[in-house]
C-alpha cells in the first residue's frame, strides 16, 4: 500500500506545521513553465501538490483559474497530457504526493478504468473530481481503489451533517473542505466562525481536512493552520506563476509556508 495523504499530513504536523498544498494548472502558461513551477513548489516544501486539469466549462472556478485553463487548453493540454505531466514530474525525481484535480467529463470520455490505470502508471496518488458528488462517486471510488488511488471528496459550508458523515465514510484518507460558498478565487479574510465549522466538520468526517477556496494570503493561511491538516492555495499561485514566473511563485510559497508554522 502506498502512504496515504493523511500520513504525509500527519508527518508534517508532527514537526509543527500545517500541510502546504499548492495548486497549479497543468500546461499554464506552457507545459515547461508549469513543470518548472511544480518542481519549485515541491522543492520549497509543498506537502501535497494539486495538479489541475483544464476543462472548457469550469463551473467551480473563478476568473483566475478559468483563464489559466483556457491558456493551457490553447496549448493542447488535456486529461491524458496532464497525467503524462505527473509522470514527467516523477521522472524528474519529484516525490511529493499529487492530487489530480479535474472535472468529470474528460474522465468519462477516456473511460474510468483507463483513467485509473493511467493515473497509477504516472504516479498520481489521489483524484479530486470537482463535479462528481459523493452520491455519484461509488463506481469511481471502487475502480480507483483497485489501483491504490485515493479519492478526495468535497464538503462545503452548506453540507448537512448527514451528508458529512456519508462523505467521511466514502472519501479516501482526507476530505477537502470548501471554506466558503462560491467558486475558486482570491479573497481576503475568512468566513466568520470558520474554526468552529472546521471542528464540527472534522468530527463528523472523522478524517483530516484540506481547506481551500479563497485562501490567497499568508494571514488567511496562518488563521487556518491550527484548524486544518492542510491548506490549499490555488488562484493566488496560478496568478503569481502567470504574472511573475518562477521567482514570484517561490516568494509566495516561502511566505505561505512560514505562515503555516504552528
Amino acid at each position: 500500500m502506498p502512504v496515504s495523504l493523511a500520513r504525509y499530513l500527519a508527518a508534517r504536523r508532527s514537526v509543527g506545521r500545517a500541510g502546504f498544498v499548492p495548486f497549479i494548472v497543468a500546461g499554464d502558461p506552457s507545459r515547461g513553465a508549469s513543470l518548472m513551477a511544480a518542481r519549485l513548489l515541491a522543492a520549497a516544501g509543498a506537502d501535497i501538490l494539486e495538479v489541475g486539469v483544464p476543462f472548457s466549462d469550469p463551473v467551480a472556478d473563478g476568473p483566475v483559474i478559468q483563464a489559466a485553463g483556457q491558456r493551457a487548453l490553447a496549448k493542447g493540454m488535456s486529461l491524458t497530457n496532464a497525467i503524462s505531466f505527473v509522470a514527467a514530474l516523477r521522472k524528474d525525481g519529484v516525490t511529493v504526493p499529487v492530487i489530480l484535480f479535474t472535472y468529470y467529463n474528460p474522465i468519462l470520455r477516456l473511460g474510468v478504468e483507463r483513467f485509473a490505470k493511467a493515473c497509477a502508471g504516472a504516479g498520481v496518488n489521489a483524484v479530486l473530481v470537482v463535479d462528481l458528488p459523493a452520491e455519484e462517486s461509488i463506481e469511481m471510488i471502487a475502480i480507483l481503489k483497485k489501483k491504490n488511488i485515493e479519492i478526495v471528496l468535497l464538503a462545503s459550508p452548506t453540507t448537512t451533517d448527514e451528508r458529512l458523515k456519508r462523505i467521511g465514510k466514502l472519501t479516501g484518507s482526507t476530505a477537502y473542505y470548501v471554506s466558503r460558498q462560491g467558486v475558486t478565487g482570491i479573497r481576503s479574510g475568512l468566513e466568520r466562525d470558520i474554526a468552529k465549522r472546521l471542528e464540527h466538520v472534522g468530527k463528523l468526517i472523522k478524517k483530516p481536512l484540506l481547506v481551500g477556496f479563497g485562501v490567497a494570503e499568508p494571514a488567511q493561511a496562518r488563521a487556518l493552520a491550527p484548524h486544518a491538516a492542510g491548506v490549499v492555495v490555488g488562484s493566488a499561485i496560478v496568478k503569481e506563476n502567470f504574472a511573475g514566473g518562477p521567482a514570484a511563485v517561490r516568494r509566495l510559497a516561502k511566505r505561505l509556508i512560514a505562515a503555516l508554522e504552528l
Binding site: V59, Y104, V130, D131, P133, T158, R163
Partner: peptide, 18 residues
C-alpha cells in the same frame, strides 16, 4: 437521483448539492 434511464443526474460541485 433524477435519472431518465441512464441520463440526467446531478453532476455539480458540492456547494450546489444542498
Amino acid at each position: 437521483t433524477g435519472r431518465f434511464g441512464c441520463f440526467g443526474g446531478s453532476f455539480v460541485p458540492e456547494t450546489l448539492i444542498e
